[in-house]
Amino acid sequence: MAYGGLGVAESKPADYPARRVAPVVLKALEGASPTKLAVASLSFYYGRFRALKDISLDIPEKRVTALIGPSGCGKTTLLRVFNRMYDLVPKARAEGSVRLDGMEVTETTRLLELRQKVGMVFQRPSPFPLSIYDNVAFAPRLLGWGRSRVAEAVETAIKDAALWDEVNDRLKDPAASLSGGQQQRLSIARCLAVKPEVILMDEPCSALDPVATLKIEDLIDRLARQYTIVIVTHNMQQAARVADFTAFMLMDTEERYGQLIEFAPTTDLFNKPTDPRTEGYITGRFG
């Protein structure tokens, strides 16, 4: 019972099997993995407001890293730095360094290449108003891939997103006809179709019921062998179930910037947190 005494296991909904705990522990013990995203002294500003202060962490390759913390602590902001989604916000800017392989994310002008490498899955499923097939084929087609290459990429992506068996006989149906959980897996398939290396997930299960959540978590587990996954979650149990590493973030009470409190293998973070604030959060004393 890795999480005994933390008050975590007891509060799990019945639909979540405890079996997930074991592979997570094993994976974390597999040893060090090379760094995929190196974040160093990162600060982030919305205009004059500092939203993130001095964040440094190394996100390992082909592992699942969870960002947890109470609302407003900057988890999503940090996630959106990794694919420069903040470019949409006027006057938003990042200081410091985020390196993806050889590329400086905060300064690169090769935005499209960056976003192809770093895919994103959003909180709410966001199907395009197109058919299931066309949703996944949309980006590959616009990227100018040939017909057969597109077809192959679409099929592989839908299979990898564990959706193929449910939709292969109705690929021409509108994506809006799928259930919420299926739509979210379709969003993941759409993201996989352009062959990313990193997948960012912004609370991918918060709009889903427990059964659909379980399917997504299974999927994350499987995808982690091929992709580097960074997942923002409100749900500590989810972090414990899916993540190899967990970063705990907290908002500074005075200046309201988000900061990184602790970053460690998930088992360590939950079992022997080094910072009292981490312990306070995971034992449910605040947040």
Binding site: L88, L112, Q116, K117, M120, F122, S126, F138, S187
Partner: peptide, 18 residues
Amino acid sequence: IPGSLREAGLALGLARWR
């Protein structure tokens, strides 16, 4: 049209005008 549609498109690495 919800902004989430635009974000989802941009996140796939597609140019803004496309």
